[in-house]
Amino acid sequence: MGAAFQQAWELIRSGDPELLNILSTTARVSLTSSLLALLLGVPLGILYGVGRFRGRRVLIVLNRTLMGLPPVVCGLLFYLLFSGVGPFGKLKLLFTVPIMILAQVALITPIVIGTMETYVAQTAPALRETALGLGFGRGKRFLLLLNECVSPMISAYLLAFARAIAEVGAVAMVGGAIAWKTNVMTTAIMMYTNRGSFTLGIALGLILLGLSLLVNAALSLLQRRLNP
């Protein structure tokens, strides 16, 4: 373990070009997919939480099922859809970063929707009753609800980002873990471990944990600033 720490430090200090490439691909994939999931998931989560429309319960159950979707199944679906014989094969997206982002968006958006839906469903009735009692219109009620949602949005983003950065099954299947192109931290760890380079694998794992810790700490600080 000590050797792994040393090697992780050496890798960072030396500015190893392959490591930097893996890091930048990981950051691109995880940050973009989690942001897209947030943009898609927050409005849907709010809609599921406050909306009273036919089929809402079915959608909620479906979403909760998708929250547990195994990454490899998600990867397989995207592989079939975007492979040469699939309906979107002509787009030639397989083994590129955009398809890795798409697969992760499909995987983590249900988490954002679920987190927001649970919070909004608990908060909205009391908020609505108070706001209606004061005579506030629909627009003002919606803005107040959005203001209440800041903290759960950060929590939802943290969950989505954590799932995205730690995920390996989907990105490996649709990205192919191609060195200098689609290799991310998790697929690189798998690759080095398969080659027997355990120390390098552990070193990368430590860097991955460090990155995750940094993002979590930054967002937790932001959350505390917003809710002192």
Binding site: A126, T130, N147, N227
Partner: peptide, 8 residues
């Protein structure tokens, strides 16, 4: 309402 709500 019976239960007062405090906005954030």
């Amino acid at each position: 309402p019976q239960k007062s709500y405090a906005f954030r």
